[in-house]
């Protein structure tokens, strides 16, 4: 604890760096994955191709991709861009699957009704499909956010800033307190991001809560019936 207090300034700097490195991949991954997921949902041919590519992408070990990035992008090994591009790719790989499922789950009847009352494809996407796919998209985004925050620590192995620095430095100094500080910090960032996403979700998707409550009510009723 004394170590933590004595090094608060450095820990704070690393935390800020960690947050900055996490935000870009999470947002970019989401923004890119939603249209890709929509195309995969809409057109049967692209679906197989897109989902297979995402599956393959996810098999590449993250550390391997980070170190291979300079070769692919022509960047310097210490460029934060390597980490951001790698984590964005992972975010897309994780998110496209969920996005496809989310659009698949939107009821066909609702889509047809909206077409029938005169919605064009563009307005239908923004006002019908996207809002209804929202809750599932949010669930996917929460997974992406948590795993991205935790993956940023790997950047420390290639000399990147962030809380992962406390792991490599603490290991070299044989100092568990420092490492534990890094772990707790990383988990805290992940939790804060998650809470923020849930709150944003509540504001943007108020109907999701009504749905959930209804489902939970129905579920408990069923359990009671079985118990009786």
């Amino acid at each position: 604890m004394t170590w933590v207090l004595a090094n608060l300034e450095q820990i704070w700097e690393l935390t800020v760096a960690h947050i900055l490195l996490s935000i870009a991949p999470i947002l970019l991954g989401f923004v890119l994955a939603v249209p890709i997921g929509w195309f995969a949902h809409r057109f049967r041919v692209s679906r197989g191709v897109v989902l297979t590519v995402c599956g393959l992408l996810y098999t590449i070990p993250s550390l391997a991709l980070i170190v291979a990035m300079p070769t692919i992008l022509g960047t310097k090994i210490l460029d934060p861009l390597n980490l951001i591009v790698t984590l964005t790719l992972y975010a897309i790989a994780l998110m496209v699957r969920t996005a496809t499922d989310a659009f698949d789950a939107v009821s066909k009847d609702v889509i047809q009704s909206s077409t029938a009352v005169g919605f064009g494809a563009w307005r239908r996407f923004w006002q019908v499909e996207l809002p209804l796919a929202g809750p599932v998209l949010l669930a996917g985004l929460r997974v992406v956010s948590t795993s991205t925050v935790s993956l940023v620590t790997l950047g420390a192995l290639v000399g990147m800033s962030g809380l992962g620095y406390l792991f490599t430095n603490g290991y070299q100094r044989n100092f568990p307190t420092e490492i534990l500080t890094g772990i707790v910090g990383t988990v805290l960032i992940a939790v804060v991001f998650d809470v923020l996403l849930v709150l944003i979700g509540r504001m943007l998707l108020p109907w999701a809560r009504v749905d959930e409550a209804a489902r939970r009510g129905a579920g408990s009723a069923r359990v009671k019936a079985v118990a009786a």
């Binding site: 997974v143 948590t146 795993s147 925050v149 935790s150 620590t153 790997l154 420390a156 192995l157 809380l163 992962g164 406390l166 792991f167 490599t168 603490g170 290991y171 044989n174 100092f175 568990p176 490492i179 534990l180 890094g182 772990i183 990383t186 988990v187 992940a190 939790v191 998650d194």
Partner: peptide, 21 residues
């Protein structure tokens, strides 16, 4: 599943390695 996903693998690894010594 949520909590374990947030745990950074590298951190846990070096922590245990140093702790066990």
């Amino acid at each position: 599943t949520g909590a374990l996903r947030a745990l950074p693998t590298l951190g846990l690894l070096v922590y245990l390695a140093v702790l066990f010594g």
